[in-house]
């Protein structure tokens, strides 16, 4: 950098360096290969933990049903049963190799985007345009597989954002144009762009911690996000009094939110040394980010459902609702977590 670039740029650089130093960042390593093995031992133990939690939940419901036979646990049972299916499918999706995992995440994006388009109003004139919108999914995930970060990060927010309205203009229908192009881009951003950050975690090499790249980071993010959902629900159910967003999601309370974020943060702290390159300070910050981010993602999808007068986004996951009801939090936590990690370590 030349001296003419000015003192401002220099101070910025210096302060960035300072930030990185104070939070004990491991030095950046460039051009490292995808970590082998794809599925480190630590992730195996982490999955074991997830199965143990599920077994515990299943046993707990069984015992409570024995104690209070008059209470209705069918909804809870259905939920846990669906959790089992989700966890088994996730094990399968992540257990083989990176490219298969990326393919599975692309399919998840497809399901989410399809559910989104089935909920929101679309125009009949846009029949072909919607096919083009779907095309963004394979392209985005191919960019992940190719590890082409520069294009991955701008493909949907820039190129598809420009291409979609052009394609709609070619159709020539102007009635409802803004609403149609707006809803389409929002769907692509949440269901494809945001979620694809999960897949990009898979191609990040391990730095600092031999276990701490790829699938380990993905597990860390997804587990904490889903755990946070459950924790907020349980805290809210047990201690909830003051509503946070009465007009959007009347079941969400301050107590649930704070309790959930605290629990998630503690767990984030505990899991970080096993699965990530993060130290305590970063893990603490990431825990809080995932806790609040998950909440915001959740209520954002709730707001959409409320706008459209729906209770659930679909019925793919019995006891949970649709696929969007389950991954709403991830649409926010995935990009946030990814960029924190990417900024600090890559």
């Amino acid at each position: 950098m030349s001296n003419e670039a000015g003192p401002v740029r220099k101070t910025l650089d210096a302060s960035q360096q300072a930030i990185k130093k104070t939070i004990e960042v491991v030095p950046r390593k460039v051009n490292e290969a995808i970590p082998k093995p794809h599925f480190p031992e630590a992730v195996g133990y982490a999955f074991l933990g997830a199965y143990l939690i599920l077994m515990f939940a299943t046993a707990l419901v069984w015992v409570r049903k024995r104690i209070y036979p008059e209470r209705d646990y069918s909804e809870l049972k259905l939920r846990i049963k669906t959790w089992w299916i989700i966890v088994v499918l996730t094990t399968f999706a992540l257990g083989f190799n990176t490219y298969f995992s990326i393919f599975c995440l692309a399919f998840l994006s497809f399901l989410a985007f399809k559910e989104y388009l089935s909920l929101v109003p679309t125009r009949r004139a846009d029949h072909r345009v919607l096919l083009w919108a779907y095309l963004a999914i394979p392209i985005q995930y191919l960019l992940v597989g190719a590890e082409w970060y520069g294009v991955f990060i701008i493909f949907i927010p820039v190129y598809w954002f420009l291409f979609m309205p052009m394609r709609m203009v070619l159709v020539g229908e102007t009635k409802g144009f803004l609403a149609a192009v707006g809803t389409l881009q929002w769907g692509l951003m949440t269901c494809v762009f945001s979620l694809s950050h999960m897949a990009y975690l898979l191609v990040l090499p391990a730095t600092g911690n031999p276990n701490g790249g790829g699938v380990a980071l993905l597990f860390y993010l997804v587990f904490l996000t889903q755990f946070n959902d459950v924790a907020q629900y349980v805290w809210g159910k047990r201690f909830g009094r003051v509503k946070v967003t009465p007009s959007v999601s009347p079941n969400k309370t301050i107590e649930g939110l704070v309790g959930g974020v605290m629990t998630t943060t503690l767990l984030a702290l505990a899991m970080a040394p096993w699965l990530t390159p993060m130290g305590h300070v970063q893990a603490l910050a990431v825990g809080v980010l995932i806790g609040f981010g998950g909440f915001i993602g959740d209520v954002t999808i709730s707001a959409i459902k409320r706008d459209l007068g729906l209770k659930d986004s679909g019925s793919l996951l019995p006891g949970h609702g649709g696929i969007l009801d389950r991954i709403d939090s991830l649409t926010f936590t995935a990009p946030v977590f990814f960029h924190v990690i990417y900024f600090l370590y890559y």
């Binding site: 399809k114 559910e115 388009l117 089935s118 679309t122 009949r124 029949h127 919607l130 096919l131 779907y134």
Partner: peptide
């Protein structure tokens, strides 16, 4: 509901929608 949205009369490639 939804199949006419996915592939109406005159079109031959289905657009994915939940029906």
């Amino acid at each position: 509901h939804g199949l006419g949205k996915a592939m109406p009369k005159g079109s031959f490639i289905p657009v994915p929608f939940f029906v």
